[in-house]
Design a protein around this nucleic acid. Structure first.
Lengths: 239, 239
DNA sequence: TAGTATTAAATTGTATGACAAATGGGGCAA
DNA sequence: TTGCCCCATTTGTCATACAATTTAATACTA
C-alpha cells in the first residue's frame, strides 16, 4: 500500500492519521456523538492498514476525543470529555481556529494564575532566575518593534517568571496555555503600539520581582493581564 | 495465547496493559530516560500480542509518558513532558501514592483558581445554579459527621461553584484536580473536627455567592483554601 | 592516524488475514 | 405486552512477514 500523502512525506503514518482525524474532529467534520466509519472501511478510505488506523484511534482515545465499543463503533465524545490541556488537542484547535469564547476563557485562567505566579516568583526565585527574568524583559524591549520576535520574547518572559515560581504543575499548565496565547497575541498586536505601551508594566513587574516585593509583583501582573485581556476582547469584538 | 490475568477479567486487554505499564512508570519501576524492553520481548513477557502492546504503548505516548524511535526503542520521557492533567496520569499517580510536594502544588493552584471562581460564580451564576450551590452546602452540613460522605459532598460543592462560573476550561482543570484533592482530604480529615470547623466558611461562601457579593465570595473562598492548605500541610508534616 | 563514507544489525513501523468476544437489536415465545 | 434468545456487526486479539529508520561498527581514504 503506497504512501501517496502529498503533505508530510517524512512523518510516521500513524502520526499523520492521528493528526488528520484529530483535525477532522476539531473542525466539526465529526461532531460529538457521531459514530466514525468502522475500522475496515475507514482504513480503506484513509489508505492505511487497520493496524495503523487502530493505533491512531487509540491515541485519540487516550486524549479523550473518542470512545470505543464493540458493535456500536467508535464514537466522538462530548467536548467536556476532551483533554483540553493536551498539547495536541490545543494545537489542533488552533489550526482550525480557536473559538473566541475559548480564548477569553484562557484569559480568565491567566487572570487567576499569573498574579500569584508573579508573587511566588518574587518570594522563591533564585538570584539566577530573577536575573534571567530581567534578561527576558530587556530582550522584549530590544525587539519591541518586531511583532513576531516580541511575541516570542513575551512568552519567554512569562515562562521565566513561571519557572521562578517553583511549581511544576503550574509550569505544565502555563506551558500548555502558551501556544493559544501566542495565537491570541497575533490578534492583539493588530492594536497599534500595544507592544510599546505594555513595556512599562513589564518593567514594573520585573522590578518588583527582583526587589522581592511580592505585593507589587502580584498587583502589576494583575494589571498587565487585565490590560492584555482588554486588548484581546477589543480585537475579537472588531471581527 | 491465554489471558491468565487474575486481576480484572472483564476489562479489555489493552486497557489492562496501559494501566500496568502506566503504574510501572509512576512507581518509578521504569524511570525517566529508561528504555523499555523491545516490543517482541515485552509482549512475550506480558503475555499479550505485539498489536495489543503497541496500542497500549501508543496510548501512553499520547499522554506524554513515552517516546518512540526506531532502533533506539521506547523510552520513558522526563516528568516535565508528562500530561500531568490527564485524568489517567493523575489517577495512576494517586494509586502509587502522591508525592507530598505534588499535593502542595495542587493546593497552590487551588489558591490561584478558586477565589476568582467564586467571584465569577457570584457574578454570572443563574438562579438555579446558585440554588444548587446552596443545596450542596446543606448536604455537607447533613453529612458532616461521615468522613467519606463529607468528602464527596465537598467535591460536589466546589464543582457546583465551578459550574456557576461558566468557564469550560476551568471546569476541566478543577475536575481533573478533584481526585487528588479527594486523596489529600483523606489525609486532612485526620485532623479532628476539621469538617465541623470548616462549615462556617462554607456557609459564608454560599451566602456571599447567593447575595451576588463578589468581593465577599472571593475573600471567603480564599480563606477556606488557605485553611485547608494549612490542614494538609500539618498532616503532611506529621508523617 | 584521523576523518569520512559504507555497511550491517537492531528496533520500530506497516501490512495482511484470520478468528474471538462483546453488544445491541430483532424475532420468537410465554 | 414482556421477557428471552439468537444473530449480525463491530471492536478486540493474535500471528506473521516485511519495510523503513537509525545507530554503531567497520572499512576505506586522505
Amino acid at each position: 500500500m503506497a504512501k501517496i500523502s502529498t503533505s508530510s512525506p517524512r512523518q510516521s503514518l500513524y502520526k499523520q492519521i492521528v493528526r488528520q482525524i484529530g483535525l477532522s474532529i476539531m473542525s466539526n467534520k465529526f461532531k460529538p456523538g457521531d459514530v466514525l466509519l468502522n475500522e475496515p472501511e475507514l482504513s480503506l478510505q484513509l489508505n492505511v492498514s487497520r493496524s495503523v488506523l487502530r493505533e491512531a484511534l487509540k491515541m485519540l482515545g487516550a486524549k479523550g476525543l473518542v470512545a470505543f465499543r464493540p458493535r456500536t463503533g467508535t464514537r466522538v465524545r462530548p467536548r467536556s470529555d476532551w483533554n483540553l490541556l493536551d498539547p495536541d488537542v490545543i494545537a489542533w484547535q488552533g489550526e482550525v481556529g480557536f473559538e473566541p469564547s475559548f480564548l477569553l476563557e484562557i484569559c480568565e485562567i491567566r487572570l487567576m494564575l499569573e498574579p500569584l505566579t508573579a508573587r511566588f516568583a518574587a518570594t522563591r526565585g533564585t538570584a539566577e532566575e530573577l536575573a534571567f527574568i530581567k534578561d527576558c524583559c530587556q530582550q522584549m524591549q530590544d525587539v519591541v518593534d518586531s511583532t513576531g520576535d516580541y511575541i516570542i520574547a513575551d512568552l519567554a518572559f512569562h515562562n521565566a517568571i513561571c519557572i521562578a515560581a517553583h511549581n511544576e504543575l503550574l509550569q505544565r499548565i502555563m506551558g500548555t496555555l502558551g501556544p493559544p496565547l501566542r495565537a491570541s497575541r497575533v490578534v492583539t498586536s493588530r492594536v497599534p503600539r500595544a507592544n510599546v505601551e505594555a513595556m512599562p508594566l513589564h518593567w514594573s513587574i520585573t522590578g518588583a520581582i527582583c526587589n522581592r516585593d511580592e505585593q507589587a509583583a502580584e498587583e502589576s501582573m494583575r494589571q498587565l493581564v487585565l490590560s492584555t485581556t482588554q486588548d484581546i476582547q477589543r480585537a475579537l469584538d472588531a471581527l
